[in-house]
Design a protein around this nucleic acid. Structure first.
Lengths: 337, 337
DNA sequence: CCTTAGCACTCGACACGTTCAAGTGCTAAG
DNA sequence: CTTAGCACTTGAACGTGTCGAGTGCTAAGG
């Protein structure tokens, strides 16, 4: 009962089960894989694997299916990521080339990844904690409304419409803009809120009320600029992959709408040796994602931002890992260029 | 066999079926509704309704379920929209008050509507075809990159990062900004593209290459500013409502990801007497939405922008109509204020 | 002409028993 | 350690019979 062969059996079971969605038995295994031994031997191996908790039999006379622990062992044993097919490489290349706005690139990427893996693809947009204030613009819209625009050194733009006393003139706005610009230009986004306060306090009394309101708005924008956000695509794949278990898809869709859950999950994942994180089923404590796995990796060196896919525990891990890694590499190359 | 009673029977069938999801028979009908006649009479009425094509029996000895035509007749007969419950009114009021950025308001609204109706809620963000250029800003980001910001009179901000020859100085940028601003300020968004071309042509030769690039970018932004967009929430409700028909939920989710389908659908809907559009099942030709209905209405007087819900044909139309109408009213009030 | 009671009829849902085959664990021999 | 053989378990599939919901029809009554 050699250990390497047992793991080979586990691999075969996982592969067949992912492919067929049905418990796989000893006989089918020796037929589909050249294992060089008979079904009886496989049965002995399976018994050991079951004792180890890597596979289970749903009922007495059915084949075995991998447990979460089994998937984990399987994933950990993946040594070299199989490269994508030329067609897939071409798809990535053609879809992502043509430098564009970051939001556009991320949007395309997430769709592409969903298509490549047939899973739900997710991208956490990078946060740039070291962003600084590059510019501020106050634009009167008439009707006592002012549009406040805050631009960071990373090219991120936040805007908000603020109601202001109608008697505020364009000159007043100009003065206010100068004051805020002087106080904030080049400062770190995290500090903006406090600095706004200070700037507003030093304004001439005539501008004080407007200044206070604007300070609050700018502060909110700065905080907003650091807000984490998630974009995704391919939720339809979830329905297709899950079969007819509507009770299992509902909580997942709910969790996906609550971006907070995913953000927490991402932040808790630990990268493995290949720089890719895989979280399987109940390994993440979020109950609504009990039967789903996540494969993710970072794509911006300095940041915690991640890109990945999410699907049923019974998913094609090698393919997902390969696609996620490839997409992340292209992505970071594009964003760096 | 009075016509009014027959329609009353149809109403009862629709209501019961929506509630129970099971074919409803004559006996159950007289028990649950005070129709004042016996089951036998109801049976005669049902036979007529079936002949009219308003209801069908899935098989010989089952109750009847409404056809699309039946739902249509039912919806057309809704005279006065039942008002929302006080609790629901309060929910709307408390969630939507506190004036904020439009995107934030729309985001909250779509979630609220999904919660109120237990359906998928959809909002088409308004396009403002009469928007004019309010401001342009060029912000150097270093590394030969420039952030182009285009602000419309409606407070909409579009931005894009453009690569530019690194030797372009801040002064050059200032000149370019002045040139574009002079050419575009106050002009209609639709004309921006052509005007950009003209402005770029008149630049001094030194700035011509940069100007051409920027002109292209600004033109793209202007067109982008008019792009239609859709936000939605409550996809999990779809899974819950659909039961275990995974084959019916998949194409719907796919259609929802393809915003184009929804935009087309919205544009093709015709408002009924109450200003609310209801499209039932195959009334809209989009195959993937064969068994789904849409209830929608406009919420910005001048625009085609719509807010609505989407769900299975077997949905609670009165409630959906009431919620959509109420939310649309609050929304337009907020956006107008 | 409409309503109603009664009745025969249809047909899916359900419960039950039987068969079938996949798959296992065990044992004994190589 | 591997393997063939075999008894055993058990879910899935199938056929059968019963049950009941629901219908359509007919004939009688207002």
């Amino acid at each position: 009962m050699s250990e390497p062969r047992r793991l080979e059996v586990l691999r075969a079971i996982v592969e067949d089960y992912v492919h067929s969605r049905e418990p796989v038995g000893s006989k089918a295994l020796v037929e589909r894989h050249r294992l060089g031994v008979s079904a009886a031997t496989i049965r002995n191996d399976m018994a050991s694997l079951e004792e180890e908790g890597l596979i289970v039999a749903p009922h007495t006379s059915a084949g075995r299916i991998p447990t979460e622990k089994g998937y984990r062992r399987f994933v950990d044993r993946i040594e070299d990521v199989k490269p994508l097919s030329p067609a897939e490489r071409r798809a990535i290349q053609s879809l992502l080339e043509g430098s564009d706005d970051m939001d556009v690139v991320l949007d395309r990427t997430v769709r592409l990844l969903a298509q490549l893996t047939h899973q739900v693809a997710v991208i956490q947009v990078p946060r740039f904690s070291d962003a600084k204030v590059r510019h501020i613009e106050l634009v009167g819209l008439g009707a006592g409304q002012v549009l406040v625009v805050l631009i960071s050194t990373t090219g991120k733009v936040e805007q908000r419409v603020v109601p202001l006393a109608p008697e505020t003139t364009d000159e007043d706005l100009h003065d206010l803009k100068s004051a805020f610009l002087a106080a904030l230009s080049g400062r770190r986004m995290e500090d903006v809120r406090d600095l706004c306060q200070g700037a507003a306090d030093q304004l001439p009394p005539r501008l004080a009320p407007a200044g206070a309101q604007l300070a609050a708005a700018v502060g909110a924008l700065a905080r907003n600029s650091g807000a984490e956000r998630i974009i995704m695509a391919g939720t339809a794949n979830l329905a297709r992959a899950t079969g007819d278990f509507s009770h299992t898809i509902t909580p997942v869709l709910e969790a996906l709408e609550e971006q907070v859950v995913l953000l927490r999950l991402f932040s808790e994942m630990e990268q493995d040796a290949h720089g890719i994180s895989v979280s399987i089923g109940s390994e993440h404590a979020h109950g609504s994602l009990a039967e789903t796995s996540v494969v993710a990796t970072g794509y911006v060196p300095g940041s915690t931002a991640k890109v990945g896919v999410l699907g049923p525990t019974r998913m094609d891990y090698p393919n997902s890992i390969a696609a996620v890694r490839a997409v992340a590499r292209y992505l970071s190359r594009i964003l760096a260029g």
